[in-house]
């Protein structure tokens, strides 16, 4: 993570916290909205500290997720200023909504007017990761088709977290 681009750091942290890959997160089309939401409510220097901690946790090429998670727990989740932000980032991705930061945090680090509970956008609701995670679809969107509810649940046999990733093979990149 030599990259100093805060959006990159946001995505790396989000991937680690949510258990979805950066590609999964990008495929929702909402990374920008969530990043902007965070930046509009939390001061720049605090966000900066969050990105610094993230880069620190990701240091070293190809670190194992478990190691990165341990570091995040230490550097972010044990930090009173940063932990509530991490929790809110998870809630944004999963529930498409912003939750008001804890009162203690607000009195220490500032309370913005838009730091209130709200759904981030209609588009975000339809991409909430919680629906993917539970093997369903957002209620009222991304319908599954007539009779699909009678079919077995999607991961009765092989849930995605158990599936082995195909081995990385070097292949000539097509033009």
């Amino acid at each position: 993570m030599a990259d100093s681009n805060p959006m990159e750091a946001f995505l790396s942290l989000s991937a680690l916290l949510t258990g979805y890959t950066k590609t999964d997160l990008l495929a929702t089309g909402l990374a920008g909205q969530y990043y902007d939401k965070l930046s509009s409510i939390v001061d720049e220097d605090i966000c900066g500290a969050l990105w610094t901690a993230t880069r620190e946790a990701m240091k070293g090429l190809g670190i194992r997720p478990k190691v990165a998670e341990r570091r995040i727990r230490k550097l972010v989740l044990s930090n009173a200023m940063l932990a509530p932000l991490a929790i809110n980032i998870i809630a944004m991705w999963y529930l498409s909504s912003w939750s008001q930061l804890p009162q203690a945090w607000r009195s220490l680090y500032g309370a913005k007017a838009n730091d209130v509970d709200h759904v981030i956008s209609a588009e975000a609701y339809q991409e909430g990761l919680v629906w993917q995670a539970i093997g369903a679809h957002p209620q009222g969107a991304k319908q599954q088709g007539y009779g699909a509810w009678g079919l077995p649940p999607p991961w009765k046999l092989s849930p995605p977290w158990k599936r082995k990733k195909p081995r990385l093979k070097r292949r000539r990149r097509a033009a």
Partner: peptide, 20 residues
């Protein structure tokens, strides 16, 4: 919301396990 939040793939697994 726990003092030791469930994170990452573990979070996905436990959500599926409970909600489904």
């Amino acid at each position: 919301g726990r003092s030791q939040p469930v994170l990452g793939r573990d979070l996905r697994r436990r959500l599926y396990d409970r909600v489904s």
